[in-house]
Amino acid sequence: MGNRFVRLCQSIGAPLTARIIKLGFACRFLLGILRHSPAAFARPQLLAREIWFAGVLSILIITVSGLFVGMVLALQGYDTLQRFGASSSLGILVALSLVRELGPVVGALLFASRAGSAITAEIGLMKATEQLSAMEMMAVNPMARVIAPKFWGGVISMPLLAAMFSATGIFGGYLIGVPLLGLDEGSFWSQMQGAVDFRLDVMNGVIKSVFFGCAIALIAAFEGYDAPPTAEGISTATTRTVVTSALVVLALDFVLTAFMFRGV
C-alpha cells in the first residue's frame, strides 16, 4: 500500500520535475544568449547570414499566405457585411483583423514551421556531429558564434515578416473587394484609414510580433541545443519546436491582447 503510494507520487512528480528542470535550463540558456549578444552584434556578417536564413527564405511563404488570407477574409467578410448593408466597411474588417491579429499570429505560426524548425534542425545536427564541441576545443564559444546570431536573426526577421503578411493581406483584400466585388475604391481605402489607428493598431501588432519572434527563436534554439544527439532526437526536437512555438504564440497572443485591447 505504502509502496504503491510512493510509486504514484513518483509517476506524478518525475515528469513535473523534468519539465521544471527544462524550464530552468531554458531560462539559463536565454541569459547565456543575452550575455553573448554583444559578440554576435559585433560580427554583422554572421547576423546577416542568419537573417537571410530565417527571414529572406520565409518571404515567399509569408507573402503568398498573406495574400490568400486577405482574399479569403474579404470574401467571407463581404458575405456577412452585405446582409447589414455595410459592405463598404470591408476595408476596415480586413485591415483591422490582419494588422491586429492575423498578421502577427499566422505570420508567427508560419515562421515557426518554416524558420524555427530549420534553426532547431541545424543546431541539433551541429551538436550531434559534435561541431559545437569542436568549436569549444578551438576556444570558439558556440553560444556567441552560432546560437546568439540565430536567435537575433529570428527576432529581427519576425516583425518585418509580420508587416509583410499584413500588407500583402490587405492588398489581397483590396483585389477581392474592389475589382471583383465592385466596391468603391475610395471608400474602401478612406474608411480603412479612418478606422485604423497607427499607434493603437499597427504598433501593437508590431509589438506582438516582436514578442512572438523572441519566443519562437528562443524555443527553436533551445530545442536544438537540448536535443539528444541522435537522428531520432533531432526529429523529435524539430516537432517539439513547432508544437511548443504554436502553443506559446497563441497563449502569448491572448495575454498581449488582454493588455492591449480591453475594449476602452
Partner: peptide, 23 residues
C-alpha cells in the same frame, strides 16, 4: 538581407501611410 529589410520597411510604411491614420 538588404532587400528583405527594404521590403519590411516598405510594408510598415504602407501600413502607416495608406492603411492607418496618425491618431
Amino acid at each position: 538581407v538588404g532587400l528583405f529589410a527594404l521590403m519590411g520597411a516598405a510594408a510598415l510604411l504602407f501600413l502607416a501611410l495608406k492603411v492607418s491614420n496618425q491618431g
